[in-house]
């Protein structure tokens, strides 16, 4: 609770405290008769960074989208802080894709657009935009077309745009998969900073090093099922499931 006091007042104050669990109950997604996701019960604590890990096709990106409300599950409910995301969903979440989707506008205009859509007061938009750009070290590129920025700059901009909305939950889908080490660290610093301000973070990553650096909690998925849930320390030192061991050792697992 003490963390909440350090938060910006405006939007955070409306929420019910900083520590909000993220829950999924009876989540099930099927496509063409194939079960892509089947997770009877899932709880994440509100204050930690949770990393979703697993082989390709394990369903981690799908789970991320279901939790974010971008994909409707065939069955089950998602609760944020005890209630469905509902109509306010868009105002409560940020989502960063592996390949950033930037509008054909300047870097600053990309952030302004998101703020405007989210309904921030007109008077605050310029200031918030400036702050968001500065947080990502992009203040010098405010007027540059977003799509001529380097890959690392584009992803920093995407993260800054998501965080400018002060979301309750930030979802990241392999945000650094195509970035160099320097850019990766810059993104990780932004993400860690957001956690410090009380945003719940769920991250899909293949990068064990990244999960180790950022996450406190690891969820390991295999074939649409949750096979292991552990603290980061426990997961990386002694994974319980055969699949997770194979994953960490870099073995092919069938």
């Amino acid at each position: 609770m003490h963390e909440a006091a350090a938060l910006p007042v405006s939007r955070r104050a409306e929420a019910e405290g900083a520590v909000r669990p993220l829950e999924g109950l009876g989540l099930r997604v099927e496509r063409a008769g194939r079960v892509l996701l089947d997770i009877p019960e899932l709880r994440m604590s509100g204050s930690e960074i949770t990393a979703l890990m697993g082989f390709n096709g394990s369903g981690k990106s799908l789970l991320l989208r279901v939790l974010a409300g971008l994909v409707q599950p065939d069955a089950g409910t998602v609760l944020w802080a005890g209630r469905p995301p509902g109509r306010e969903r868009a105002r409560r979440l940020g989502f960063v894709f592996q390949k950033p989707v930037l509008l054909r506008r300047s870097a600053a205009a990309n952030i302004r657009y998101a703020l405007k859509v989210a309904g921030f007061p007109r008077a605050e938009i310029a200031g918030r935009t400036e702050a968001a750009l500065a947080s990502a070290g992009l203040q010098g590129l405010a007027g540059s077309p977003a799509r001529v920025l380097s890959g690392g700059e584009q992803q920093r901009l995407a993260v800054a745009r998501a965080l400018a909305l002060e979301p309750e939950v930030l979802f990241l889908d392999e945000p650094t998969a195509s970035l160099d080490p320097g850019s990766t660290l810059a993104i990780e610093a932004l993400v860690a900073g957001a956690r410090g301000r009380g945003t719940k973070i769920v991250l899909v990553t293949h990068d064990a090093g990244q999960a180790r650096r950022l996450a406190q909690e690891i969820l390991f998925l295999q074939q649409g099922r949750l096979v292991e849930r552990a603290s980061a320390g426990q997961f990386f030192t002694g994974p319980q499931s055969e699949a997770a061991r194979a994953f960490l050792e870099g073995r092919i697992h069938i």
């Binding site: 868009a90 105002r91 940020g94 989707v101």
Partner: peptide, 24 residues
Amino acid sequence: GEYREQLQVLGVSRRTEVATLLWD
């Protein structure tokens, strides 16, 4: 095809989506 998920994340209305796509 490129913008859809991002606009969905931002929760833009259909009307705003049409305007955004036309402009971009």
